[in-house]
Design a protein around this nucleic acid. Structure first.
Lengths: 190, 190
DNA sequence: TCGCGAACCGGGGACCCTCTCCGCATGGTA
DNA sequence: TACCATGCGGAGAGGGTCCCCGGTTCGCGA
């Protein structure tokens, strides 16, 4: 990716500052925090912000990349200590809770599982999350606790959808858990 | 509601024009169509628009109220010609497809099932849809095809969530059908 | 250590959107 | 016909996004 040349020292400094400012602003005002404001907080001009991060998405992703990677790690942790079906369920739950608690992250995850006109233009964060869910899903399917006719990305999208539903309900973690259980067990009686 | 006095002739004319212009603009540009542009299309000043419709939501709702009411009617039609479980499933499917095809309607339905700080500040459209789904859900539960521990609004929210998921998938009607089936049957194997 | 070109910075400005305000035009009534 | 409450319209304030370009700074090579 960013080979070419190893970024000039001032450029890197500003980059770091922007990330820190962005994380603060997004946490405080949600995904629609003012970008100009973020630039001001970081003590740089708005031009500098837009050079480093061409779109809001790009900045959002860069600001949360460490959290996203933590989810990747967490997936393997869970896979090591629980049976596959449970590991998947718990991971999805934690992902959903995280999506709601950390403002702006839900939008990020949403964009990570979006079909961009067919081209698999997966963002970096999309790659991590998609990798993690794929491992968990395959294991659960091999174990026989998860139906075989779903793709990992389906599971991710449906979880995102359920999170949306929970948010509409003015959600707490209890609502998320309930909706995820409904998704797992199905709405049908019996 | 709007008793007080029977709206002056010019006011009513502008109101109608705004509705027509709004329907066109929302269909064309999605729920974020420019309000100023809508006012221009309608040949009125922006002040007039904001007087009749204080918020974007209000305009969106007014523009789609007839479609929403059609869903209410459709619910009773389906209830008359199919067993309750099927009627509910088909209605949800049509609702989801409508949400995707008519741009802006998904946002509207979302807001219709949102918990507004506990106060049941249901919009007019929310009332219609909520009434329809309640009738269908109760019938299906009485029949025994729908699990008893879900509220009608849960079904609505989850459908909205699934629609969101389908949209992320670059959805067609096939994807919606698939995701709704997954929701009905559950992700668990068996 | 020094000089130089490339890389980067900053903030002003163009453009778009929302929403309000108030002088003015107009419809409905006596 | 004449009056005045009611509704109209569009300019403007405020806030946001994003680009552009003159000026500055870095760090490589000598």
């Amino acid at each position: 990716m960013t080979q070419g040349r190893p970024m000039r020292a001032d450029a890197r400094r500003n980059y770091e500052r922007l990330l820190k400012a962005a994380a603060g602003a997004f946490a405080e005002h949600g995904e629609n925090a003012s970008l100009d404001d973020i630039a001001k907080r970081a003590g740089v001009g708005s031009g500098t912000l837009y050079r480093h991060f061409p779109t809001r998405q790009a900045l959002l992703e860069a600001a949360y990349v460490d959290r996203i990677e933590a989810f990747g790690v967490r997936a393997d942790e869970l896979a090591g200590e629980r049976p596959p079906g449970e590991a998947l369920a718990e991971w999805l739950y934690e992902l959903a809770v995280g999506s709601l608690q950390v403002r702006g992250m839900r939008a990020l995850l949403g964009s990570a599982v979006t079909e961009h006109g067919g081209a698999a233009a997966l963002t970096a964060c999309g790659t991590v999350v998609h990798g993690a869910v794929t491992r968990l899903v395959k294991a659960a399917q091999a174990e026989g606790t998860l139906r075989g006719d779903v793709e990992p990305i389906d599971v991710l999208r449906l979880t995102h959808g359920v999170t949306t539903a929970a948010e509409l309900a003015g959600a707490g973690e209890r609502e998320i858990r309930r909706y995820l259980r409904l998704l797992t067990e199905g709405l049908r009686a019996g």
